[in-house]
Structure formats: C-alpha cells, structure tokens
C-alpha cells in the first residue's frame, strides 16, 4: 500500500528531527542539530534494510517517491515566502557581507571540487601504471 511508504517517510522525519532536537539539547546548541540530515540517513538505512529483506514493494516506493518529486514545487513555494523586500533594502553591511561570503565560498568550492578531478586522474594513472 502506498501509505506504508509515506508512513515510513513520516516516521523517519519525526524520529530524525526528534534526535536532532535531543542532540542540540545535549550539546547546548539551542537549536536542532542536523535533524533533517539524521532523518535522511534513517530513510537510507531503512531502504537498504527493507530492500535486502525483500519487503520493499513498488507501491511502497511510490508513497515516498511522490514526495521526493514534489520537492521542486515545494521549493518554489518556499521562495515565494522569503522576505525579499527586506533583503533588497538590507543596508550595505548585509548586502556586502552576503556577496563577499558567497563569492569566497564559490572559490573554495571550486578549488575543492577541482581536486576531485585530480584524484580521478591519479587513479587512472595508477591503474595505467599497474597494467603496464
């Protein structure tokens, strides 16, 4: 049944966020620490476990897949409720800080991701020398 999938998703969501709250309290962070991430990991483990047991029916998967596919429309709705007016009026400090952070982070991301290509090249080289 489709609802099994949606219920599994809901259970992972709730348990994950609860654990995130708990972790936040434990660490004194005054916020949720990685609740959604924990929920995602739970769902990944549940899928692997159910799949190995042969309990994962196509219908069950549909109950989760639907919500995954709703993701982009939900993000559009999220964009539609940002405080864009305040952001555009935000004052020089806010605008400058935000731009500087994004620009610098973009460079760091680019550098780190560049290393990935190098690793791949190295691996290919290693394989090549190995074969030679």
């Amino acid at each position: 049944m489709i609802i099994y999938g949606t219920a599994l998703l809901a259970a992972c969501h709730l348990v994950g966020i609860y654990l995130g709250d708990l972790l936040g309290k434990l660490l004194g962070a005054k916020s949720n620490v990685g609740g959604v991430g924990i929920a995602m990991l739970l769902l990944i483990f549940c899928r692997l476990w159910l799949h190995n047991k042969g309990h994962l029916k196509h219908e069950t998967e549909l109950g989760i897949g639907f919500w995954g596919a709703m993701y982009i429309p939900v993000v559009v709705a999220m964009a539609a409720q940002q405080n864009v007016v305040a952001a555009l009026k935000g004052g020089q400090v806010a605008v400058l800080a935000a731009f500087a952070v994004v620009a610098l982070n973009a460079c760091i991301i680019s550098v780190i991701n560049k290393m990935e290509v190098h690793e791949d090249v190295d691996n290919v080289k290693n394989v090549a020398t190995h074969q030679a």
């Binding site: 959604v36 899928r47 989760i64 897949g65 995954g68 993701y71 939900v74 409720q81």
Partner: peptide
C-alpha cells in the same frame, strides 16, 4: 489569498520533501 503558500513552502513540507529525496541517494 495565498496563505496556503506559507504551508506548502513552510519548514514542515520543505523538510518532508527533502527527507523523501534521500530515497534516491546512493549510500
């Protein structure tokens, strides 16, 4: 008129949909 947008794009639905995308993750 658009109060529903607040619910659809709010933290609850957003997180629910994000968690659902984990189903496609290659562990």
């Amino acid at each position: 008129l658009f109060g529903g947008i607040g619910l659809m794009g709010g933290a609850m639905f957003r997180d629910f949909a994000i968690v659902a995308t984990a189903f496609e993750v290659h562990a």
